[in-house]
Nucleic acid binder design. Structure first.
Length: 487
RNA sequence: CGGGGCGUGGCGCAGUCCGGUAGCGCACCUGCUUUGGGAGCAGGGGGUCCCCGGUUCGAAUCCGGGCGCCCCGACCA
């Protein structure tokens, strides 16, 4: 960095910018253990707000929380063939405990399908015991070769929902219900509108029949898989003997779904809204929505300004605003301004002696709309009463900007591989083409462009007129797919 | 696992080529003056120079070995 105080700009080096934002906005820090991170209060506060909202959404749709253990017998993981093949390379395994070699090693959960369905098997006898709709908030571990703060850490926090149903139709409906919840959460809370769709065979979850995902486009035009919802069929039920007696009296295997989002969402938020001054946190997720910086002088007005600041904070709080007074004495106001900007607080309120005389406050918005001034002087009462609506319009503005950016970087009607290469190598983005469904084409395109099929888009995301030829030039298109380089 | 970079007060770095008193900026502590966009002055505290071994009168610096972290790639719900 030329200037130690400034961040590397996004255009200079997006990857460095991202790391610097995460570290210097105090979202997280590297831990002593390779590939794992410490989530600091500012980052965890954002995660807690995500959790709270999602948790409510799950409960509103009939799900209950439970908790299953961290350690899973190795034999469980090995039971479902595709599952073990998918996860074996990245398992961390406990082989010793209590000073002794264990008879059977335990895997530290990379995901909990196996242990959860083994328990469901115990709890389910009749169709009357179904559906089971459970979720757990947990940590999981996947020993990735290469890690990145929030985007891919060896240990991460997530929620994993696991359900069991009597019919495939009901399970499929559940899978899509959750996909919709994820999408709504990403749009309305993170302001990160994803494209939803089905994963190709090669990209689907290890053990699933079908995987659906939310794919969000970041500012560097790479896609981030932000959430997945899987229809597991009876794959796990068969392996774990999860059976029930149907209304007609027959013994049948249950139909399962699993779905999850993780702390990766925090990384997605950073890469969706951050700018060269640092983080921008959407108001609905911000631990502090408005920070009050008292401007004091070394005279007898200082006490009054501080008192006014706290009063003002209390009034905002009454309006349901999450607010903080930054009364630190060792920092100048300017230093505080930069710090809160770096952390992405939506609004800053300055209160000084001059404002007190005029009964006003200075209001600074973290992102300033086109043509607007940096600071706005607003009458105190008005600032209080308007703050909730100002926060909401800030939220809306972020979402709309992200939506616009996604659309501007979505390339539809791309017919040839050459055309696709041209786009991917010059700025990138989401490229929509026809596909004949052949995995070899998928592999070939990946080889050539480093882009992968992010998803086979849900109907509403498909292009107006369906492509008729496969991007490979060979054969008719059987479906439209969205390609992008991905995290 | 391949390529690159880096390990020196809390953080960022210089010093290493050419061996000889461990330094700078920020942060921290005390005091005074300040405070509307990264405060100033004065005083002060803090370091096994990643580890092990070797060469040398003497090693942050030279030699050998090891470890760790970050970035790029391969891999990856």
């Amino acid at each position: 960095m030329a200037d130690e105080k400034k961040l590397t700009s996004r255009s200079e080096d997006f990857s460095s910018w991202y790391n610097e934002v995460v570290l210097r906005a105090e979202l997280a820090d590297y831990s002593p253990v390779r590939g794992s991170m410490v989530i600091r209060p500012w980052g965890y506060g954002i995660w807690e707000n995500m959790q709270r909202t999602l948790d409510e959404m799950f409960k509103e749709t009939g799900h209950e929380n439970a908790y299953f253990p961290l350690l899973i017998p190795m034999s469980f993981i090995e039971r479902e063939k595709a599952h073990v093949e998918g996860f074996a390379p990245e398992l961390a395994v406990v082989t010793q405990a209590g000073g002794k070699e264990l008879e059977e090693p335990f895997a530290i959960r990379p995901t909990s399908e196996t242990i959860i369905y083994s328990m469901y098997a115990k709890w389910v006898q009749s169709y009357r015991d179904l559906p089971i709709l459970m979720n757990q908030w947990a940590n999981v571990m996947r020993w990735e070769l290469r890690t990145r703060l929030f985007l891919r850490t060896s240990e991460f926090l997530w929620q994993e929902g696991h359900t069991a149903h009597a019919t495939p139709e009901e399970a499929e409906e559940e899978t899509l219900l959750i996909l919709g919840i994820y999408r709504r959460f990403m749009e309305e809370w993170i302001g990160m509108p994803p494209v939803t769709g089905l994963k190709s065979e090669s990209e689907k979850f290890a053990g699933a029949v079908r995987s659906y995902s939310c794919e969000a486009l970041m500012q560097d035009n790479k896609a981030l898989q932000a959430g997945t919802s899987h229809f597991l069929g009876q794959n796990f039920a068969r392996q774990f003997d999860l059976k029930f007696q149907s209304e007609a009296g027959a013994e049948e295997y249950a139909w399962n779904t699993s779905w999850g989002v993780s702390t990766r969402l925090v990384g997605g938020m950073v890469m969706t809204h951050g700018d060269d001054a640092g983080l921008v946190v959407p108001p609905r997720l911000a631990p502090v929505q408005a920070v009050i910086v008292p401007i004091t002088r070394g005279d007898d007005t200082a006490a009054a300004v501080l008192e006014k600041s706290h009063q003002f904070a209390a009034r905002l709080k009454d309006q349901g605003v999450r607010v903080k007074v930054d009364a630190r004495e060792n920092l100048s106001p300017g230093a505080k301004f930069y710090e809160w900007e770096r952390k992405g607080v939506p609004f800053r309120v300055e209160i000084g002696p001059k404002d007190m005389e005029k009964g006003q406050v200075a209001l600074a918005r973290r992102i300033v709309p086109e043509g607007a001034g940096r600071k706005e002087f607003v009458a105190e009462d008005q600032a209080v009463s308007e703050m909730p609506s100002r926060l909401e319009s800030f939220q809306t503005e972020l979402r709309e900007a992200a939506w616009k950016r996604r659309e501007e970087n979505s390339h539809r009607g791309v017919k040839t591989l050459d055309e696709m290469v041209e786009i991917i190598e010059n700025g990138g983005g989401m490229v929509y083409t026809g596909w004949n469904g052949d995995p070899a084409v998928e592999e070939m395109v990946k080889e050539r462009t480093k882009a992968t099929i992010r998803c086979i888009p849900t109907e509403e995301f498909r292009s107006g007129s369906a492509p008729d030829r496969c991007v490979s030039g060979e054969g008719a298109s059987t479906m439209e797919v969205a390609w992008a380089r991905a995290y």
